[in-house]
Design a protein around this nucleic acid. Structure first.
Length: 474
DNA sequence: TTTTGAGTTGTTCGA
DNA sequence: GTCGAACAACTCAAA
């Protein structure tokens, strides 16, 4: 009787370049792919509505791809360990393979699962599918984790990057009898009220969508990346973040594609790889500093004088701060589940610096609303803006929401797209409508305070307050 | 992966 | 033609 391998899918929802899958296929035994919806095991960071929407489609697609190979995706709900154990019993499997995750609570849980399975005579093995450099293999000369991005990335870049792993999918063996599976529809991952119309226009949340975006990136965008990536009015970024989060594409595939397209020695693609580097760095930090989703990396910041204010938070969430570039970003997020990175920095800085709201509140909102919500990236990004994380230079980052708009949305098309009530306002006043005189506003059909809000805080005043708050930490 | 204000230099324009 | 006011354009240091 040959053995059976259970392949436990998690944040690696692809078949190609999937080391756990490859290893299972190479065993030449039957393979049972499973996805477990473990609501308690995900810890406090249970995914929000936008992520669940994506997950639904990603699972549908993975099941379809497996079916095309004559296989299936078995769905189970409950404690990961219990589900795996019963699946192992039902199918008489002797191996369980999966790809590693790096969220602290997941790392702990997976350790326990591995130990338990091994104790029961099951060969439990984990692999790396989602990073170029795993956190535990990178350290500085002192044997400590890096805390400064440039040093970290310099170090990583000297290391070899392995090619995507492939096995002949045709040799994938299926079990004689399939264990029972739940129905995806019963998991209610899709919204009850249909708020996802814009989502469906914007995204193709499946493997072929990932490949399309990657192709489009290497063919059309990579060469002008550094100029265009900061322009939310242009389609200059890769849009790969949600695919990377769910593992519908892996960083090794991205790297290989850039290398194949002979782009590796060009400056622009290197800038893009630096962004991949930030993702790696975020995972590095999350793994080595497991408290960072809740607590500032620089502990001094625990005394930061935040001024929690529900109505400020609400106005920010709804895109009603009176600062057009901020509101445009927040509305784009709400409607499409995604926000351009430049605008993420502007809106985050605004919440933390201008409104003095704790970065954790902003992180929680992004977590709920982003399709690419990722604990490592989200945590790192917010700590970076708040100035309490790695690579910190807090004074550098009080973005001026007026000049940032003028600089990065120079025609105003992004802002007008998401804040249409300002679409008849001229560029001169677009990013600061309160500076326009009554007749200009009237001509643009804007009633400040009614059709579009007055600024929630005064920029100069808020900036001074934020600087004072930072000074108080010293 | 920034902003601001001060200081400097350059340009324009009318007296 | 010259002078100086006003302002734009730039650099730099500090936050």
């Amino acid at each position: 009787m040959d053995g059976t391998t259970v392949v436990w899918f998690r944040k690696d929802l692809r078949i190609e370049d999937n080391p756990a899958m490859v290893a299972a296929i190479r065993r030449k035994c039957s393979v049972i792919p499973v996805f477990i919806q473990d609501e308690n095991g995900e810890g406090p960071a249970f995914p929000g509505g936008a992520s669940r929407w994506w997950l639904h489609h990603a699972l549908t697609d993975l099941a379809k791809e497996l079916k095309a190979l004559g296989s299936r995706l078995i769905l189970r709900k409950g404690s990961s360990l219990e589900c795996l154990k019963s699946l192992v019993n039902e199918s008489k499997a002797d191996h369980v393979y999966w790809n590693r995750r790096y969220e602290p609570s997941i790392v702990e849980r997976d350790k326990r699962i591995k130990a338990d399975l091994k104790q029961n005579g099951i060969a439990a093995k984990s692999f790396n599918a989602s990073l170029l450099f795993e956190p535990h293999e990178i350290q500085n000369k002192a044997g400590k984790p890096f805390q400064v991005f440039t040093r970290y990335w310099e170090h990583c870049r000297q290391r070899p990057i392995s090619a995507p792993e492939q096995a002949s999918l045709k040799t994938l063996k299926t079990p004689r009898t399939w264990p029972a599976s739940e129905r995806l529809e019963d998991w209610s991952l899709l919204p009850e009220i249909p708020w996802d119309a814009e989502f469906s226009c914007r995204w193709k949340p499946n493997r072929s969508g990932a490949i399309e975006f990657l192709d489009r990136f290497t063919e059309a965008k990579a060469r002008s990346y550094s100029e265009k990536r900061n322009r939310p009015d242009l389609d200059g970024t890769s849009s790969l973040s949600p695919y990377l989060h769910f593992g519908q594409i892996g960083p090794r595939e991205i790297y290989a594609k850039i290398a194949d397209a002979k782009l590796l020695n060009l400056e622009n693609p290197q800038v893009f790889l630096t962004e991949i580097g930030w993702r790696e760095f975020s995972h590095h930090l999350l793994y080595h500093f497991p408290d960072t989703p809740e607590l500032p990396l620089r502990s001094k910041f625990q005394e930061f004088p935040w001024r929690r204010n529900k109505s400020f938070l609400k106005a920010w969430q709804k895109g009603e701060t009176g600062y057009p570039i901020v509101d445009a970003g927040m509305r784009q997020l709400w409607e499409t589940g995604w926000m351009h990175n430049r605008v993420r920095m502007i809106t985050a800085s605004f919440l933390v610096k201008h409104l003095l709201q704790p970065w954790q509140d902003g992180a929680a909102w992004f977590w709920d609303t982003l399709v690419d919500a990722d604990l490592a990236n989200n945590t790192q990004g917010w700590q970076w803006t708040a100035g309490c994380g790695a690579d910190a230079s807090p004074y550098f980052r009080i973005f001026n929401p007026i000049t940032q708009g003028q600089k990065f949305d120079p025609n105003g098309s992004y802002t007008k797209r998401w804040v249409p009530e300002l679409k008849e306002l001229s560029l001169k006043h677009l990013f600061s409508p309160w500076t326009a005189d009554t007749s200009t506003l009237e001509a643009a059909k804007i009633a400040l305070g009614k059709s579009y809000p007055m600024p929630i805080v005064d920029h100069a005043e808020a900036r001074e307050k934020a600087l004072a708050a930072f000074r108080s930490l010293k």
